[in-house]
Design a binder for these strands. Structure first.
Length: 478
RNA sequence: GCCCCCUUCGUCUAAUGGUCAGGACGUCAGGUUUUCAACCUGAAAACAGGGGUUCGAUCCCCCUAGGGGGCGCCA
């Protein structure tokens, strides 16, 4: 009988929740859900200088927006420092660690020497056997872990396979700083053990740490968790993800108008696959996700594919939900306040009614909002350059002829409007496009926009006719 | 420099000791359409290089090259 799976997402709050972290969280979450286990959240805030309250908030917020929930309360690593210190002392008492009195300057010199000699620039173990009585006065010692010097440390990684490190390449790392605070590798081991973590799923930048942590687990007589080191996400140029490309916080993706479901779908396919399946529901993801199907090579972040996926999710999301999401998004946009004012209290209904035509042609929510501008535009509509071309004198004339027909029309449903305009086109012997294009330009100010009959219907009789008149007159010679 | 990892269309990826090496995004060409989008059809597009093992290697082994990660009293 196997234990319940417990995974953890353990970000350090030194910045936002970036895209790689988001995927790591997603994988942990999916694996926990898949196995019916739990995902815990641990905030690794032991670097007091760099950790910030704002970063913690941003991370929690990002996870919530992505709809990745965690079990229990977040655990703040800093609050566990006493326990970590206790374990460091225990290792010291058992002779599995020792006090090191080397100064920063000495360590620096040591590293330079090692590098010059072509060795790994690690600690040389000077204080491993030296007696504390030889310690120079006035130096507070750090505690170093006495790492095995011979043999190998082997990681049986669920993604990377069997990875072997020669112990001679792993130096004696500091586990307790001279100021008495614990360091990362010790804290992680103690916390993973105390939290009952069974599976550690994280970026493969931690692969070497896995070896060091394994050594500490062994020294403590504890079982190691199952490891799964996931390849990192690279930028479009194959280099490390930088701010220039995707290393934005997830809140930036939210602000760009991506849907969390789309981002999750995109992210899960980056480095993991289930046959030829591309688009999958969260339920399917949970059902199908497994560690063994994670690839071993780094993946490049591709905004274009994300956009495609986002377009799909926008098209298949209900009108009402899209309106809700847009409501939440607008305040985050640069000109959000002004837009909100123009929409007013009655604009949301209009937006929802226009949604069927709008959502067909937007890749992001921001694009959708942009396309919906005609709904809230003040008259007269300012024509964009493209639309200006469509509304040439000929177009204005056509509209002038169409106007009387529209005025007598009683039924302003999209279908009867379509019939009316089609009949007009036929009677005047021109192609439907010849009529539809200037009509669109007059009503929306744009050359591309939703279905024109829907636009007419959504704006309503009064508004539509007034707008057409505006544009026809604006073009008529005074 | 040392250690570790990786390498299939431009990108994300699938599959297999014998396949026309599959799908998706993107691109291109058609179709449909009131424009755009969506949708439909079709096309171009990949096993990094070199050695082995084998009747046969994209697949197994080794080397090279390229890319990435790590090497703190950071996490």
């Amino acid at each position: 009988m196997s234990r319940e799976v417990i995974t953890r997402f353990a970000p350090s709050p030194t910045g936002y929740l970036h895209i790689g972290g988001a995927r790591t969280a997603l994988f942990n979450w999916l694996y926990a859900k898949h196995t019916g286990g739990k995902m815990l959240l641990r905030i690794e805030d032991t670097d007091r200088a760099r950790s910030t309250e704002g970063a913690i908030l941003a991370i929690l917020d990002g996870l919530r927006w992505l709809e990745l929930d965690w079990d229990g309360e977040p655990i703040y690593q800093l609050t566990r420092a006493e326990r970590h210190r206790e374990i460091a002392e225990k290792l010291l008492a058992e002779g599995k660690a020792y006090r090191c009195y080397a100064t920063a300057a000495e360590l620096q010199a040591m590293r330079e020497r090692a590098r010059a000699e072509g060795r790994a620039p690690g600690y040389d173990g000077t204080w491993r056997h030296r007696d504390p009585s030889e310690a120079p006065p006035g130096i507070e010692p750090a505690i170093r872990f006495k790492a095995p010097r011979e043999g190998e440390t082997v990681i049986e990684d669920r993604v990377q396979g069997r990875v072997v490190f020669a112990n001679k390449d792993l130096d004696d790392l500091v586990i307790l700083r001279s100021d008495g605070t614990p360091t990362y590798n010790l804290s992680v081991v103690v916390d993973d053990h105390d939290m009952g973590i069974t599976h550690v799923i994280r970026g493969d930048d931690h692969l070497t740490n896995a070896a060091r942590q394994t050594q500490i687990f062994r020294a403590l007589g504890w079982d190691t968790p199952v490891y799964a080191h996931v390849p990192l996400i690279h930028g479009p140029d194959g280099a490390k993800l930088s701010k220039r490309h995707g290393a934005l916080g997830v809140e930036a993706y939210r602000a760009m108008g991506y849907l969390p479901a789309a981002l999750r779908n995109y992210l899960v396919r980056l480095g993991w696959s289930h046959g030829d399946d591309e688009i999958m529901s969260t339920e399917q993801m949970i059902e199908w996700f497994d560690l063994d199907a994670i690839g071993r090579s780094a993946a490049r972040f591709d905004f274009v594919k994300l956009e495609n996926l986002n377009g799909y999710y926008i098209r298949t999301t209900s009108d009402a939900e899209l309106v809700t999401r847009i409501k939440a998004l607008i305040p985050e946009l640069p000109d959000g306040a002004a837009l909100l004012e123009r929409i007013g209290s009655d604009g949301w209904g209009k937006l929802e009614r226009a949604m069927p035509g709008l959502k067909e042609r937007a890749k992001t929510l921001v694009e959708l909002i942009d396309n919906a501008g005609y709904l809230f535009a003040r008259r007269p509509i300012a024509l964009e350059p493209q639309a200006e071309k469509l509304l040439d004198p000929e177009g204005r004339q056509t509209l002038g002829q169409l106007l009387p027909r529209l005025e007598t029309l009683d039924d302003w449903s999209a279908s009867s409007l379509e019939d009316c305009v089609k009949a007009f086109a036929e009677d005047s012997g021109c192609k439907l496009g010849k009529v539809a294009q200037p009509l669109r330009a007059a009503l929306t100010g744009r050359s591309t926009s939703p279905g024109i009959f829907d636009v007419l219907a959504v704006l309503g009789r009064q508004e539509s006719l007034a707008r057409i008149r505006d544009q026809v007159h604006a073009g008529a010679p005074a």
